[in-house]
Amino acid sequence: DDDVQIRQKAAEIDPREAAEFDRELRALMQESLESRKSDLRARPTLNMMIPMNVFDGSRDPRAADGESGEETVDEDGGNLGGNKVRVKVLVKRGNKQQTRQMFIPGDCSLVQSTRQKEAEELEE
């Protein structure tokens, strides 16, 4: 009797509830934005250099894993479909920069310019 049939419940979303949630979410976004815009204190200086080691041999997005100084997690157990693009996510830990690899769907606008570049480079 462990064999339970679960009927897929159609998610019932109360439209009023959803509208109210949407309103609160938008308010939070807008308020966050306003609070930053109205912040007349000093604007942060740019601190966005890409560390040199990221460039090392990474032109080819299919470059081998395990470069020095990087931690990689191969998510999806190597089940890397053609529709995913590998990117390096740059984060700061204190003042140290670190990169981690991630896979982003190929149709994500974020990687489109990179894809274009690759295509151009391949053609060359």
């Binding site: 934005l33 930053r36 815009k37 912040d39 693009v85 590998r86 974020l110 990179t114 570049k117």
Partner: peptide
């Protein structure tokens, strides 16, 4: 622009 490197950036400022 040229690398497959991404970072988080705030919208403002």
């Amino acid at each position: 622009k040229t690398e497959s490197v991404v970072v988080l950036l705030c919208r403002e400022p």
